[in-house]
Design a protein around this nucleic acid. Structure first.
Lengths: 217, 217
DNA sequence: TATCGCCATACTGTATACACATCCCTGAGT
DNA sequence: ACTCAGGGATGTGTATACAGTATGGCGATA
């Protein structure tokens, strides 16, 4: 693997996991030294992160980790809703039923996966669901747009907390979306997606650490 | 201006204007020599173009200009419709009326602008309309997604042809969208956007050079 | 004659050196 | 004491050199 790829993946992870806080200055010399590579591949990594919107050029200070707060989650969902709805509708139209029937079986068993306190298997299942959607949609522009949103969502999600009850409910919502896709019911796919995103947003806002003002622990 | 910026802007223009055909191999040495810069800034430009989706890595051949054909325009509009609709609705909700009232006056005069056979002023007006929308929407994620789509649309548009009749009709459609935004009518903004995109797509498909099969001149 | 293997070449990926701009700190003058 | 100018240091942008890898051609052998 290329050094620039490793640098990109590492910095991306660190930003998404808030190990690099918003506003952190990303000096080329400092970061390349830290990662044990030269400035050339590091610059390439920073360029990609900038294109992703995870890094911004702040006048005078050079590149900094892009700002992010719970306030932007509403903005994010404003775009996510129409895109995920369209994706679900297109998936319902073009899906391979077998793929989603398999996912349906696994999602119906989600309770089992949620027994694990780390919930690794559950998140992996959701990831495979997203992947199956991307594949079924057969629209590279849509998938590209959704990927960008998911990146930012992953970062902001870290400010909120999942609990087993919410994840169990989310699994049920996913199940309905999958049913709609299998049935080829575009209208239901849109509605079920709207429901899921609504509940997801509510959970994030309800469990979020307070924005701007310090939380009173 | 940085050399990498110039290289990016130039290559981007050449790709959008089909001076660099899809599949063209972009060798680093060849291109950096042609543009009179070293490989370092050229690589940065190519990285940005890759992020834009205008350049792809083709296994074995390195970087090539991304494929594009009239076939992908349907895909493009599948994403464009929900995004532009949401943008129009948000703009109707958050707009500054004065900005759009000014645009309305100019758009109502579009016939005058269309007298110029190069239609420079007309395209400039449409560009300012898009800009006003982006500003009114107040959602960076949505604007980013739309910008990406517009880039690809600009490239594919070159395969079709505008005529004065179509542009005049398009101006009327824009006018209705602007009216809806000024009135704060989100529903009408969505519908008027759907109408405009439908007609726009139809025009592109009707006037497009034949896809895949050679046109019989 | 066809296929396999080897060698030369070309190109990408990385490191490093250099040029230029900018910002901050210090010192002197008002 | 405050301000402005100069200089040093730090950092980005670009060029170039070097290393490693992959590819294409050519030759030899079956």
């Amino acid at each position: 693997m290329r050094a620039s790829d490793r640098a990109y993946a590492l910095l991306r992870d660190e930003i998404l996991e808030w190990q690099l806080a918003p506003g952190t200055i990303l000096g080329e010399v400092e970061q390349s030294t830290r990662l044990g590579i030269s400035r050339t591949p590091l610059r390439e990594a920073l360029a990609r992160l900038t294109a992703d919107g995870l890094v911004e050029t702040q006048a005078g200070r050079g590149l900094v980790v892009a700002d992010a707060s719970i306030d932007s989650v509403a903005e994010l969902f404003e775009v996510r809703l129409p895109l995920e709805q369209e994706a679900a509708a297109l998936a319902a139209r073009r899906r391979n039923p077998h793929v989603f029937e398999q996912l349906r079986r696994e999602m119906a068993d989600a309770t089992t996966l949620l027994a694990d306190p780390r919930r690794h298997a559950y998140y992996e299942l959701v990831r495979r669901f997203d992947e199956a959607m991307d594949d079924a949609v057969q629209n590279t522009y849509l998938v590209t747009a959704l990927r960008g949103l998911r990146t930012h969502l992953a970062r902001i999600r870290r400010l909120a907390h999942d609990n087993p009850a919410r994840l169990s409910a989310a699994a049920s919502e996913h199940l309905l979306i999958i049913d709609a896709i299998i049935a080829g019911d575009e209208s239901l796919a849109r509605s079920a997606t709207a429901v899921h995103l609504h509940q997801s947003l509510r959970n994030i806002l309800d469990t979020a650490q307070a924005p701007s003002t310090d939380r009173t622990a």
